[in-house]
Amino acid sequence: MAAGGDHGSPDSYRSPLASRYASPEMCFVFSDRYKFRTWRQLWLWLAEAEQTLGLPITDEQIQEMKSNLENIDFKMAAEEEKRLRHDVMAHVHTFGHCCPKAAGIIHLGATSCYVGDNTDLIILRNALDLLLPKLARVISRLADFAKERASLPTLGFTHFQPAQLTTVGKRCCLWIQDLCMDLQNLKRVRDDLRFRGVKGTTGTQASFLQLFEGDDHKVEQLDKMVTEKAGFKRAFIITGQTYTRKVDIEVLSVLASLGASVHKICTDIRLLANLKEMEEPFEKQQIGSSAMPYKRNPMRSERCCSLARHLMTLVMDPLQTASVQWFERTLDDSANRRICLAEAFLTADTILNTLQNISEGLVVYPKVIERRIRQELPFMATENIIMAMVKAGGSRQDCHEKIRVLSQQAASVVKQEGGDNDLIERIQVDAYFSPIHSQLDHLLDPSSFTGRASQQVQRFLEEEVYPLLKPYESVMKVKAELCL
């Protein structure tokens, strides 16, 4: 049975990233139509530049190519590739079939990587351009969430054990800070992308030097003109047959890092959902379990974690691919890159769409948070109580021993009897502590235990987050809708 299948058929496997999760716009960027249309555009740009620099290419040939950029006979191309065992030459023939007058000058002087690699770089750039505003929107939604809850005390956790208090907004800023680093890295790697350009079979530009009869300047002009037509500021000066596969490492490393950030955020949300302090959106008709109707599973956060793990592992592909590119190139890269580049971007696209949807509907339960604080705060307040007693004339050592005994009794009630923490009640009825009984409410005010959390939130948002989001103001209103 021949390899390949009808990918629109229910009898043929289709990647869930495309069929179930990723956005239509990201799927289109990695589609065959987008790819092969870009090949034709690159052939047109090459012909236009070659004509401008004096090669015998007519206006009629150029116009014929322009008129057929979208006229792609995919069936013919597939048949040609089956016959020739070469995808680029299959599309040269297919393009030439609908451009008979231009057929002889299509791909003039070029090698397969002229269309293959340059198209990949265009796709990487455009895919990054799709991700950047999506990530900015996630940051914006979380920034709104953090600002609104900047002063809401909550129990902090280290080692997932109760620690000092923080605020809900401050905790959210930990998430935002990681995503801001990801946004900066995505922008950097996007701006650092260079075009492969017009380089020939081993990167020496020998074929173009021959076409222009040894004119170095025209060869350099050709490279520059096509690079500018493709919208790049610069091209690699040095290439082998391909652009260095280190570029793929750079791009997928940034995406993998984004995956790590999203995994951490969504894990926190899942843990908070278990504590009943916070939940992701839950639709009115949504079913959490087929057997347990009360369940409210954090399905979206779980999906993000599941896909983020996949995204983090994909960076190993370009690392290994770059390491086995012998001399000017081997074909070890080809099949692998067809999979890992598309999957990385479709996965990143999915987790950003999902995280935006989550961040637009996060639900906080202040009463649950308050109750958990009441359970733990008495123990945390013991040092403040000791200091207040010393100020009232008591002995630190005597007070410490009193607190120690009462704390152990209260802990026994919590752990052995399943009761509430009654340390404060014990202190309130103990005559030894009568000098500070009137101060206990103040000493137990949760806001006095959150330090500068709310001020940190305000400063972080104003100095770091809002300036970073400013270039994306025009796209901030787009909502994230999930079908599944």
Score class of each variant (00 low, 15 high):
3 A>I: 15
4 G>D: 15
4 G>L: 15
17 L>S: 13
22 A>Q: 09
23 S>L: 06
26 M>C: 06
26 M>H: 02
28 F>M: 13
28 F>W: 07
29 V>L: 11
30 F>I: 09
33 R>F: 08
42 L>H: 05
53 L>W: 01
53 L>F: 06
55 L>A: 01
59 D>K: 12
59 D>W: 09
60 E>S: 13
63 Q>A: 10
70 E>S: 13
75 K>Y: 12
76 M>S: 12
83 R>Q: 13
83 R>N: 14
87 D>Y: 01
87 D>V: 01
106 I>W: 00
114 Y>G: 03
118 N>W: 02
120 D>V: 08
122 I>T: 06
124 L>G: 06
126 N>K: 12
129 D>P: 00
130 L>K: 13
134 K>V: 09
137 R>A: 15
138 V>N: 11
140 S>L: 15
145 F>E: 11
153 P>Q: 01
153 P>R: 02
160 F>H: 06
163 A>S: 13
166 T>V: 09
168 V>C: 09
170 K>N: 03
173 C>A: 13
175 W>G: 04
178 D>F: 00
186 L>N: 07
187 K>S: 13
189 V>I: 12
193 L>D: 02
201 T>E: 00
204 T>L: 04
205 Q>I: 05
216 D>M: 09
221 Q>H: 12
222 L>D: 08
226 V>S: 03
234 R>W: 08
237 I>W: 07
240 G>C: 06
241 Q>S: 02
241 Q>F: 00
244 T>W: 04
249 I>M: 08
249 I>T: 08
251 V>E: 03
263 H>E: 03
266 C>Y: 03
266 C>P: 05
267 T>F: 10
269 I>A: 04
269 I>H: 03
270 R>T: 01
270 R>P: 06
276 K>D: 09
277 E>Q: 05
280 E>G: 04
283 E>T: 14
283 E>D: 15
284 K>Q: 13
292 M>W: 02
296 R>N: 09
298 P>Q: 05
313 T>M: 11
326 W>K: 01
328 E>S: 03
341 L>H: 15
348 A>D: 03
350 T>A: 15
356 Q>S: 11
361 G>Q: 11
362 L>W: 05
365 Y>G: 03
400 H>P: 02
401 E>H: 15
406 L>F: 09
407 S>M: 00
411 A>R: 07
417 E>A: 09
420 D>P: 04
420 D>K: 06
423 L>R: 02
424 I>A: 15
427 I>K: 04
428 Q>E: 11
431 A>Y: 06
435 P>G: 08
438 S>R: 09
444 L>N: 02
447 S>E: 13
454 S>G: 13
457 V>P: 04
476 M>L: 15
481 E>I: 09
482 L>G: 07
483 C>A: 14
